[in-house]
Design a protein around this nucleic acid. Sequence first.
DNA 1: CAGTATCCCGCAGGATACTG
DNA 2: CAGTATCCTGCGGGATACTG
Lengths: 124, 124
Amino acid sequence: MNDIPFDPYQRACPSRTVLDRVTDRWTVLVVGALEAGPLRFTELAHRVDGVSQKMLTQTLRGLERDGLVTRTVHAEVPPRVEYHLTDAGRGMLEPIHAIERWTLAHADAVLTARAEYDTVHAAS
Amino acid sequence: MNDIPFDPYQRACPSRTVLDRVTDRWTVLVVGALEAGPLRFTELAHRVDGVSQKMLTQTLRGLERDGLVTRTVHAEVPPRVEYHLTDAGRGMLEPIHAIERWTLAHADAVLTARAEYDTVHAAS
DNA sequence: CAGTATCCCGCAGGATACTG
DNA sequence: CAGTATCCTGCGGGATACTG
């Protein structure tokens, strides 16, 4: 049991490293892509458009390390490796859905605000 | 009206830059800190422990640019500057709450999984 | 197919110093 | 107090090449 509660607003709190995982761009997209079901490495690379193999590997290893994704190797030739969410990983879908919902709902407003701001604060 | 719907899974979709805002570490903490009410620059720096003045300024400018935060300068000496969420910014609280909830709820499990993983995959 | 291994560049972001 | 302005370094992350 913990004597000290987690608080991401504190610099030294370990929970901040956990926060970093949820607020990772590729993590959000990869976990979101895995919601519909297990995917292979290449399939993921296609779904998450623009991710490099290095970043995809790195993201998947991190998710595996955190117990959010499981990596299954099927003994075949050519090899088939599938990634699927664990129960803990599926828990991440709630914040991810909220993030995606907000992004889609406010994208227009934000982009408009940006253009407006840049017009007003245009460099001479 | 948009002929093309936003899709953050597509590399070139502008919504990905909006996604980047919500998935920014300091953004989440700053907006979360502003939920309770307006705060001054220094107060924010204290609440969001560990943020450098440079990153705080940068984060606030970004939020202002995106129309999520308003900056109010009170004509006093010494100057008093207050930041508060706009309605759009308050909308970001939903994903942020979900993120914070998940972080606090799964921090223990994730940290344990990490330790376990690192033990098993220890470098020789 | 599903990676690992390198090389390398740009820039995120901290530290420090200065201003209205 | 609330910043801006520089300098500088580490590493995020892309490109490329190689392997089981």
